[in-house]
Design a protein around this nucleic acid. Sequence first.
DNA 1: CCTACCGATCGGTAGG
DNA 2: CCTACCGATCGGTAGG
Lengths: 197, 197
Amino acid sequence: MTRQALTAETVLDAALTRFAARGYHGTALSEIAAALDVRTPSLYNHMRSKHDLLLTIVERTVHGVLDDFHAAVDGRTDPLERLHHAVLVYAHRHATHRREALVVNRDTSSLEEPHRTTMQDLRREHEHALRAIITDGVRQGRFDVGSPALASFAIREMCVSTARWFSDDGPLTAEQVAREYTEFALTIVGVGRYASS
Amino acid sequence: MTRQALTAETVLDAALTRFAARGYHGTALSEIAAALDVRTPSLYNHMRSKHDLLLTIVERTVHGVLDDFHAAVDGRTDPLERLHHAVLVYAHRHATHRREALVVNRDTSSLEEPHRTTMQDLRREHEHALRAIITDGVRQGRFDVGSPALASFAIREMCVSTARWFSDDGPLTAEQVAREYTEFALTIVGVGRYASS
DNA sequence: CCTACCGATCGGTAGG
DNA sequence: CCTACCGATCGGTAGG
């Protein structure tokens, strides 16, 4: 069994695994090095600092979420269709990118300024965009829910938490979970079963 | 402004605040001491170790959740009523005990064995008890949901995440949020609006 | 990629 | 409740 080449990407991947399992502050660089079968100083040929590893992980993930969201929603005008696809893609991402989701949720607050604020603003952007879909749907009389903000939080966090329990070895695929969660989301905003294209 | 007396409870409360804000591994005992305006060694008159602070916080919180659950559910037989009250009390607790919820969710995994396993088993006990209510409801034909496990996860995590965004200064009280979330939960299991006693 | 090493900080103890 | 201090470990650098 030959050892894999040490690159910026393999270091990031090992960091991602360890940060997800133990948290940023709970992970020592020596553990990441050990996982790659090298000594700690060797990591510095492929990264700038421990903080930079976290920053790269959070940046990629947050931008990935926003890209997914726009790919799912842009070009659609029907609030029901927009919500459907936004939730489908968001839930799916959290089942298929569990480590990234866990790290972003747990450790974005550990970023140094100004990165912390920048990343939190980007996350809020997605949050507001999802809420706007619900608000639109209510205004157009397509959705029925008392508090769009509350419904938005519930739907978001329901999807996010998929990262905490989903397993590739479980009875359901990521696609199946995403579809079921999309139905949950639609019932929360007061829409019954919905067969989409 | 006279400084409050240093006791086991004031130390625990300061630890709770800091752990919730920065995480267990991200918090130094010196920060807890500074918040109480004493030096680090003084803390040891009121605690055994940093780990013991975390253990006490997690133990109390997890047992509190289970106590709440049994007080809400025991003696009721109707699945719809049982789910209604279980969710109401669970959501309410996460809005009113935000720090505790954040620490348990983030840092239970940082407990040393055997405590880590013990606490995770207790959390699982609550998870399974909630799921059993849904399974019962489905079996009795009162609920309509494809996967009771999935519905249970969605409802649980929706409630848990309240701790991440709820604010006492917001437009909704903890009671209002809990009631709305209970409605969300009931729609997820396929029950319409439900006026309970 | 390594060995050798740095200053800083950590949780915790001694002793009063 | 404090000062003084401990060994261990941390992220990171020098230099090859």
